[in-house]
Structure formats: C-alpha cells, structure tokens
Design a protein around this nucleic acid. Structure first.
Lengths: 239, 239
DNA sequence: AACCAATTCTAATTGAAAGTAGAATCTAGT
DNA sequence: ACTAGATTCTACTTTCAATTAGAATTGGTT
C-alpha cells in the first residue's frame, strides 16, 4: 500500500508544517511523478507501461507500489496536477497584466499560456491535455470535474469580453470555448519542434482565434485605449 | 487466416467484376466493419475489445479472425475507410457548389462536411478522427500517410482563397489548417447530442473560423458576386 | 553493532484480452 | 441425400502488463 503522505486528503489540504518533517522518500515520489508525466505525455495512455516510468525514475516497477496504489491513481494525480498547474499559471499571468489591459489582451494571454505550457513548458500540463481523451471514461470523468475551475476562468473572460462588446455577440460561448480548446489541444499533438517556434505558433493562433472573435480590426473594440490587437506585423504570405 | 478478398491489394484496386462473384461472407465482413467502426468511435481505442465488436456483429470473438488477420488490421481498415469517406464526401460537396462559389463558401463547405460527418453521419469518419491520436504510433503513421490526400485538398482550397485575397495573408497556412482540424476534431469528442444541433454547431464554427480568416466583412472578398458569407442571422447573444 | 522502520528489490501471481486449432455447421452444386 | 468448401463456434493457449508477497537492503538511532 502507498505511504500515508500520498493520500487524497493530504493532496487537498497540505498538512501543517509543524508535525510533518519532510520524509526523504518524498523525493522519490516526486521523481516518479516527474517521470510519469514525461512518459505519459510522450507515449500516451496505452503506450505507457509502469516499467517505463519506473526505469526513468531509477526504480524497479514493483517499487512504484510503495508510493502509489495503482497505475490509475498515478495517472489521476499527474493529470490533476497538470490542470491545476495550467490554471494557476493562467491566473498568475492574468494578474501580471496591467489593470487596464483590454479583454482581448486577456484572452490572448489565456491562449498563449495554455499553448506554451502544453507545448513545451510542462510535462504535467501536456500530459493532462493529451491524456484527457485517451483515458478510460471513469478517469476522464474525474478529471473533467477538476477542470471545471479552469473552464470557468475561460468562460468568465469570454463573457467579460462580450459584455464590453469586444467580441461578437452572436456565437454560443460554450462552442467558442470548446473550439479554442480544440485548436490549442490539438496543437500539442501535431506540433513538431522542427517547425515554427511555439511563440510563433502562439502568435498565429492568437491572431486567428481573436480575429474570429474580434470585431473588424478597423474600428476600436472596447472602451479601453486600444492597446491590444495591433494590426498584423507583416503581410508577406508565409509558406 | 483472413480470406483472400480482404487483402490490401484488393482494397486498393477493386477487382474486375467479371471473375469475382460476390461471396456471401462479404456481408459478414461488412457487418464486422460497421460494428467495429461504431464501437471504436464510441469507446475509443483502448476501450474496445474484440468481444464487443463481435457481439455487435452477431459473432463469436474468435470468428473475427476468419475475416481479419488481427485487431490491428481491422483498425487500419476502419480508419482508412473513414478518411477516404470524409475525403470523398468533401470532393463531392465541393463539386456540387455552383462554379462561381466564392473561396470562402468553399472553405465553409469543407468545414461543414468534416464536422457533420464526424459528429453524426459516419461511424467511420468519427472513428478515424477520434482514433488518430489514441492509436499506437505505428498505426498512426500509416494513417497519416492516407490522410495526405485529404490534407492536400484543404491546403489547395486555403491557398486558392489566399491567392484571391479572401483570407488574411499573414498566417502560416499549415498552422491554420491544423488549428481548424483541431477545433473540428475536438468537437467529435465533447459534442453531446443534447446541446446545439450539429447544424447549429457547424454554423457557429464556420462563423468563428472564417471570421478569423476572412477580411473584415465590410468589403467584398473576391471577384464573385458576394453570394457567400452573409452577416450573422441574429445578433442576440446566446447562452 | 544491533535494531527498527522505511524503502526497494526479486520473483511470483493474476487477469484480461488477443490470437489459434480443430470440431461443428452451414450452403451450394450435383 | 451427399460432398466439398466456406463459415462459424468452442475451448484452449499465449502474451503482456499490472499487481502482490515477502525477502533484502538502507539509514538513522540508540
């Protein structure tokens, strides 16, 4: 059985630092998680064997069970951490924007954050993105619950943008949200480091998404000074 | 071993009708394919057992091997048929357009076709779409080869549209193509028949995608009379 | 230096699903 | 009705990866 520190409750409410001296095996646990996040995001759900994870973490497969009750618990935790991390990063980056940033600028930030995390910055994020539809239905259900908070963040921003007239009023925002998610998540699958840089990719995606949402660039979008949404940097065709 | 009619070659070049009287078991083979397409598209790659497929086709699991050499061959064929079917439908629908249809109208047609097939009209199409990233890497490679033709069709239409100035010149068309694919394919996963109708969904997706690509609706796009791309039917916010 | 708990290893066991072999049945043509 | 080939069934066998049990090791404590 897995050691006590790995229980769900512990994950929810970090124990008071007083009576919990850091156990040395927490490091191993961390190594396992990192390894699993990497392997899962590289090889997918059905392509990943516990042996692979163990090997990368420098252990024997059987030893994983000292830290995790089952393969499924491990996946759950990876994905859970992934969405939490993506969400946290999004909140952080939004907070870092100047308070008068336009709603479009905020959407842009959300898009960039999601894409960059999924593409290169976090094995956990890309694992949680890629795995969501590979994983058996019961795991997926659990994860979708966890993703509600992140989804809500998107919805809020979209609604805010619509409220000030920055985006078109005639689209179903759920559809819009799902579509953006699709475009972004798909990218984690087909993206090859040999092509455009993630930054460049993000720029194109932002351009494309926003100008499907934004009003015609000719007129100004909202009450803000129009800081965001500059005209395309170049008009020379690419590829 | 599978019977001779199921060989790859037969699939590539339909045998001359003269010396190939229809064997009765071809019906069974067809039933199996249909069943497999359905089950795979409902339960995904790792969620589908040969037993499920056999049951739906009214057979015992072992009997499948009379028609197919392996589970993998079966998947290959399902997906292959799926992309071929999607491609064929697209070509057909494009051909059915009036010859003077605008490039945007043609893109719209491509999007609609893909979405509707994937959402409800064809188990093969949705299987090929959903499975592509669930399936082990070697199968995926084979499939991606088969998808080139379909991808080329999209690329042509996009390039044509760009050539006449109907879409923005500053985006990487590969990125655009992938992004559209993502948005569409993702929809096959999250779509629930309880929400908007597929047609409605298609409308919103088309609107969103094209107005990320189209120039400002104010001016006319191409040499054609501007048949396509009417202003949004309603401007009352939805949801 | 002996002990105890924590951690990891080795060597099974288990279980699920794919795949196989040969027997049974069905169908068409005689 | 009889037979040959085609088709399907039943009952294995295989395979592979997850999981478990118990032995070994490690590290810190007295």
């Amino acid at each position: 059985m897995a050691n006590a520190r790995s229980d769900d409750i512990a994950r929810q409410t970090p124990a008071p630092a007083v009576e919990e001296p850091p156990r040395k095996s927490d490091l191993t646990r961390q190594r396992i998680l990192d390894a699993a996040a990497r392997v899962f995001s590289e090889r997918g759900y059905s392509g990943t064997r516990l042996t692979d994870i163990a090997a990368r973490a420098g252990l024997q497969a059987g030893s994983l069970y000292y830290h995790f009750d089952s393969r499924e618990k491990l996946i759950d935790e990876i994905m859970h951490l992934g969405t939490r991390r993506t969400h946290a990063a999004a909140v952080e980056r939004l907070a870092a924007l100047p308070p008068d940033a336009s709603p479009l600028r905020r959407l842009e930030t959300l898009i960039e954050n999601h894409l960059l995390l999924g593409l290169e910055q976090s094995d956990y994020s890309s694992a949680s993105i890629k795995l969501i539809w590979q994983v058996p239905a019961d795991i997926r259900e659990r994860q979708l619950v966890g993703q509600r908070a992140y989804g809500a963040l998107w919805r809020e921003e979209l609604e805010k943008a619509r409220a000030v007239g920055a985006i078109r009023p005639d689209l179903n925002l759920s559809t819009v949200r799902m579509m953006i998610a699709g475009a972004l998540n798909w990218a984690t699958d087909w993206y090859k480091p040999t092509g455009d840089s993630p930054t460049r990719l993000a720029r194109d995606l932002v351009e494309m998404v926003l100008h499907g949402l934004a009003r015609a660039p000719a007129r100004e979008a909202g009450p803000d000074g129009g800081v965001a949404d500059p005209p395309p940097a170049t008009s020379r065709p690419r590829r």
